[in-house]
Write a protein that binds this DNA or RNA. Sequence first.
RNA 1: GCGGAAGUGGCGGAAUGGCAGACGCAUCAGACUCAAAAUCUGACGGUGGCAACAUCGUGUGGGUUCAACUCCCAUCUUCCGCACCA
Length: 802
Amino acid sequence: MSVPYNHKVVEPKWQGVWDEEKAFHATNDFTKPKYYALVEFPYPSGQGLHVGHPRPYTALDIVARKRRMQGYNVLYPMGWDAFGLPTENYAIKNHIHPALVTKNNVARFKEQLHSIGYSFDWDREINTTDPSYYHWTQWIFLKLFKEGLAYKTEMPINWCTGCKVGLANEEVVDGVCERCGSPVVRKVKSQWMLKITEYAQKLIDGLEDVDYIERVKVSQKNWIGRSEGAEVDFAVQGKEDKLRIYTTRPDTLFGVTYMVVSPEHPILDKYQAEIKNWDAVVDYRAKAALKSDFERSELAKEKTGVAIEGLRAVNPVNGKDIPIWVSDYVLMSYGTGAIMAVPAHDERDWEFAKKFDLPIVEVVAGGKNVQEEVYTDVAEGTLVNSGFLDGKSVAEAKEAIKNWLEEKGIGTRKVNFKLRDWVFSRQRYWGEPIPIIHCEKCGYVPLKEEELPLVLPEVESYMPTDNGESPIAAMTDWVNVTCPCCGGPAKRETDTMPQWAGSSWYFLRYTDPTNEEALASPEALKYWLPVDWYNGGMEHTTLHLLYSRFWHKFLYDQGVVPTSEPYAKRTSHGMILGENGEKMSKSRGNVVNPDDIVNDYGADTLRTYEMFIGAFDMNASWSENGVKGCRRFLERVWNLQDLVTKEKGYSSDFEVKMHQTIQKVSYDYENLKYNTAIAALMSLLNDIVKKGSLTEDEFKTYLILLNPVAPHITEELWNTLGYEGRIYQQKWPEYDESKLVEDTMQIPVQVNGKVKATVSVLRDASKEEVLAAAKAAIEGKVSGNIVKEIYVPGRIVNIVAK
RNA sequence: GCGGAAGUGGCGGAAUGGCAGACGCAUCAGACUCAAAAUCUGACGGUGGCAACAUCGUGUGGGUUCAACUCCCAUCUUCCGCACCA
């Protein structure tokens, strides 16, 4: 009898051996086929690893280990996305330098990851807070600046009253700060911006060429929000000026009965003198300014607005004189800040018209009374009351009117995007300094490349200031410099970059992590890119994933990287919820610590359980009993060692089952079906135990198939039985197509779609033979006459009787 | 409102249009034990039946098909994004 399975001995032992043997290091042998597997690097928080982390890490660890056994040069790296608010907040509270907090947290994370036995190449570990790393983050920023894609502008930002920092739209959830939950207000500040909008079309087009799960593509497309329409100029009555609007429904131009401008629209100030009810307009505008974007949309149910008295517009298609209104349902930040209103065929316009008793003119006939109900169906409907467009379909009318507008010089075709530029400044200490100097005379002057990295200065206090300046601003020694351009007095930029900066290109650095001359060598980039498989959370779809695609496309246009897309394949995992089905959180008291699982059951059990818990892309609830079940499975595998014979090859009664399992497990590991791969291995185990013995080769194959999921126990068993070498050095088993089916098959026989019998037939039996056997088997069970006989080769027989 | 995902035993979940419930958990029974735990063996969707077996059954209602959890139409529920984007 073998010694009992003790994970506390087995697991540290092999982790040590693998480290020593550098078992999982990606080589720079560029002649071998490569495979680059990537998981999102964690933010090393003070809480340590969460049980959610091992799910994606284990999944791609399985792929990485399998691919290595298949002969690939595999890059499976890990690092730290270590700039960020929680670390800074912790530092402020406890008076510890954030760099030290980061160092401690990283050490903890690394130890935890190590204890789970991941095959990361730790020689390529990176940390976004290392000056040698952010050197290149700053370098990319300078490139963006030089290409005019980074600019500074006064703009209202989302200001978190708690963190005292500007937030991106994406970081504001339900009107409060995503991080701290404090209310977010609007505040005008000069901010660095990145022109991601310039890449909007490229970011959509690029999705055609990549293998992303569909919902990721759909989310990104919706987020970018492309729409096709036209810009049309409406003359302002008695003025030179035109009021330009954007519409996706130029076909409804004849139905325009009024116009609306956003409260911030410049036309208001310009014609202040003409506007008779200026007080009312100013009053309305002041009220709108007080509302945050959130409140503005929250109060969307009830439309408000003021009619401008003394200013009217002309509908260019029919010359009709129409009023202009001000309303906050029109946003200055989308389109032109002004709209043409077609109440008959737009829901918002209809509501507004109803409330303020404005005329509603039907221009698309759809069988509805537009005085009673809005009609927005674009697919059906014919133009009416629309002059030369009458009788055309909506699609035809759109084309016709666009041509007409362009011919007359009144309007142009126009594509719009919902995507906004990326607010890139943070008034915080713990981030990458922005390598720009501001000179009164020369404006914004970039640092020279040789001066990078611009290292974050040491400060006394990390506290953000109430006036919205970064704590670095107080460091006059650092801030006051001479202008590299004119030599006059100048100041450094004191805002820092957002957390998304370092993570937008980190996968490039892994390919060549210590390069001091470039972010990575062209050879390394050419060899390793694109990332073959990138897995990460759904919550990063419209932030990190989009930002990093943007930077990558920019770097591609600059000739820095060799591929236009960074990631060939993108998948996403589901969350791990608490036992009660709710999100794990301290306040709910349902948090599971992975350390406890590793300690009590072992890393292999943790890994097996997290893969067995359910479909990889769906949320799943934690279950301690489920963990126990996986531990039990591994113990049963452990006990197999007593059943192994000295025989070679696969025994005849197991051959088919072995080949089938190799096929299924190999396929499932590559297709996010880890749970059914493990189920297949459990099922094979049950058969082996039932039989009572297995050959040496059967055991070897079994261990190799299980190894990516449970690397420690399989390595130990391989070693115990005295098999040659290490299991991680073995070749992945292959299956033989011809051995996937038994010589005699069990074919179910249905009568009218219901199974009545099963027949045994030879694998190569003809259709006639099978049907004959089937009919014999159901003799007497059929009432009526047989009208049809169906045989699906190798699968099923169905006899139809009436 | 728009977009996405999901509804299958007591639970987690399996099923290229081809035997619904693989695999695991829980439960029950048996073996082992003085006993318990662990382990092993077996049973385990509902209804009827001693049983063989019959019959119903994948949110609901229709449809296509020899055959539907799977495809089509309609509908309900839940979860997750986005939300006045003209």
